[in-house]
Design a protein around this nucleic acid. Structure first.
Ligand SMILES: [Mn+2]
Ligand SMILES: [Mn+2]
Ligand SMILES: [Zn+2]
Ligand SMILES: [Zn+2]
Lengths: 141, 141
DNA sequence: CGGCTCGATGATCAAGATTCTCATTTCTAT
DNA sequence: ATAGAAATGAGAATCTTGATCATCGAGCCG
């Protein structure tokens, strides 16, 4: 199911690429840094270079297989492209990431861009706050 | 008009700090990287270290005098804090930055955060597109 | 005004993230 | 299986930003 996507993108089907796809598919959080993917590969006994992880992720992004998020913090975050556009809410305390899609906001963005004479191609919206997860360290006990 | 703000923040009034404020005030684009500020200072004959620019900007941010934006691209962008919150539209071609504020979007963000159990503290919204500036390199001639 | 003290500065080094280089390995098509 | 092209891994390199530390200067007192 992925090998065809790789071939479609003109990318050889290699072990590092398959493994990286696998990790992105099976991840709980679904939003991973290159480092996190790299560490998971090392932990599972794969011999892989960090450079390969970055290289492959960039290629996947170009091929539309993953997208790259720039949340605050210095590392980019990658997630599998599942077709539906969405934006993100990030917990300042525990880092949990939730997704949402709001047509009202999407529409307003298009209107605003038009009013300013821009033809909008993309946007990045991230909400930052404190979540209500019982495991979240900031919660009052 | 700024020296008092510096003192209020517990910062000595020094030449580098004044010059940096000056550049932020007089800049056409109003959104500058640390490097851009540094180069402008060098060009105007000031002897200043890049480290000082970064240090001062970080202090200004902590003091609420400037805010730091993370647009796509690897460098942070700084602008004078003028009191009113706003979000940004960036031209993919020429880099022009426009500002907007939309109460509908702000309200929806709060509602969405609440629905997800987050108490929202902040957000980052940037629209990317092609602008209609006649000087913008991408325009069809 | 002249000096004192501590914060500020600038040069340099350092750290973290990401990319590049290049010799070696691995796909893929024949 | 073989050749050719592409991919990999190790490490160096780059870029942005922050840390160190000796020197300098702003603010304060007399
Ligand atoms: Mn997502
Ligand atoms: Mn702005
Ligand atoms: Zn949380
Ligand atoms: Zn433009």
């Amino acid at each position: 199911m992925e090998t065809s996507d790789l071939k479609k993108a003109g990318l050889k089907v290699t072990l590092p690429r398959m493994k990286i796809l696998e990790i992105l598919e099976n991840s709980e959080t679904r939003h991973l840094t290159a480092e996190a993917i790299y560490r998971e590969l090392l932990d599972s006994g794969e011999e892989i270079g960090l450079a390969t992880v970055y290289r492959v992720l960039t290629q996947f992004e170009a091929a539309g297989l993953v997208c790259r998020l720039h949340l605050e913090g210095n590392q980019a975050v990658f997630e599998l492209e599942r077709g539906g556009h969405h934006d993100h809410i990030v917990c300042n305390q525990c880092g949990r990431v939730e997704e949402f899609f709001d047509e009202t906001i999407e529409t307003r963005q298009r209107e605003i861009a038009r009013q300013h004479g821009f033809s909008i191609k993309d946007h990045a919206l991230v909400l930052y706050g404190d979540c209500d997860d019982s495991a979240c360290p900031h919660r009052p006990v």
